[in-house]
Design a protein around this nucleic acid. Structure first.
Lengths: 217, 217
DNA sequence: TTGGAATTGAAACGGCAGTTTGGACCGAAT
DNA sequence: ATTCGGTCCAAACTGCCGTTTCAATTCCAA
């Protein structure tokens, strides 16, 4: 593959990350992507086979980069106090909100997928492990008793993975009525503290099953 | 307005609720709605002015019915133990999941809106109060100290309102890999208990601000 | 019963979507 | 210098979308 073709390929992926982060897979058009990437409309089909093929590449890049370049890795989660792991987990999703960093775009892409998963994403999570859910599961297990059911673990993992989602998705509308909050760096920091504290308190409490086992139900 | 025209109007709204609940506003087409309602494609524009006009009507019907026909009203929330209010709040969103009731369709429409709000919905929440957020705010206030900031209240209200959202949105994928849970009535009951317990424990804990005021930060 | 308004109907319009086409271009090997 | 595979481009294709048109029909009051 020659130099100029790789440049086209690369800038297509780059702009696709921007467009899909802003509008989701269904809402992002190939025309918008090729226009921003200064490429021809046919380029996506030529290089990636289809819009779905391009998105598959975007997801691969995003998921790999997200799990490598972020605060919390699957390896480090075991070596932290469990409260600190929760805080970092929340932080790595909310902190990028105010920035235009690469990571913030990955987080937004994942937020779109948690709302209405694309076929590409569904295929991906069915075959390969999704770092965010794996992380959430690891953290939840550190709070759960040894005899917790898989159902309870998975439910809590899904719950934890989605604790920040509402704010990521609706970040723009937080500053508009009827919420009308002033959204700045300080707000995001307080938001991280609040959500992390809520999650920690929730996970620390005994589950309904544990309470009923102790005759407290 | 004559009888048959009202019949067309009514069945259009009825089928629109089904279609929008299944596919969201953007994903639901007027062709699908008019076909199911056995009406002409032009009927929507004739009776409601536009697709948006129909959706405005659907939202109005859904929000009114949801706040009237559900377990928890703005009036009753003050007269219950606050833990019970949380449980009912969670229950009224999760219990309809397994059924095909009207309410389940309303919940699904709201779930679509929390993911990517339509212009119609944004206009609605900017002008009229949304029952679900009002309820969440009332419940949060019962847990918050008297001097809690509006920011903290609103953040926690948004948080509470979205506690069930992940499961409503991804309900269908819970039974598929990699989650692979068996989803039946018993599961939904346990899910309600688990989520409600998590939310109650979270709200009951002192916020980071309170802890730092006590010198525990 | 009749006249006019309300409603329905089939078809077309204009726009945007993803994709395909076929030729132009280019760089490197023959 | 020519050939050839890889790449790029403008344009067109197909399909779905929401909307509009306008004639046909239905309804109801006069």
């Amino acid at each position: 593959m020659s130099r100029p073709s790789e440049l086209t390929r690369h800038s297509l992926i780059e702009e696709a990350i921007n467009v899909f982060a802003a509008k989701g897979f269904a809402g992002g058009s190939v025309r918008a992507i090729t226009k921003k990437a200064k490429a021809n409309q046919a380029a996506i089909n030529y290089h990636f086979g289809s819009k779905e093929g391009l998105y598959r590449e975007v997801l691969k890049v995003s998921i790999e980069a997200f799990s490598e370049k972020t605060l919390l890795h699957a390896g480090t989660v075991e070596n932290l106090p469990r409260e600190e792991a929760v805080r970092l987990f929340v932080r790595q999703q909310l902190q990028p909100l105010l920035s235009n960093s690469r990571v913030s775009r990955y987080v937004r892409i994942f937020a779109w997928e948690t709302l209405s998963p694309s076929r590409v994403f569904q295929d991906y999570v069915a075959s390969e492990q999704v770092p965010m859910l794996v992380l959430a599961e690891k953290i939840v297990r550190r709070y759960a008793p040894a005899d917790a059911s898989r159902e309870e673990i998975m439910v809590k993992a899904i719950w934890l993975a989605n604790q920040s989602g509402a704010f990521v998705r609706n970040f723009a509308s937080l500053s508009r009525p009827p919420v009308s909050l002033s959204v700045d760096q300080g707000f995001v920091e307080r938001l991280i503290d609040t959500i992390a504290a809520l999650a920690i308190a929730a996970l620390s409490a005994p589950s309904p099953r544990e309470r009923s086992q102790r005759g407290e139900g």
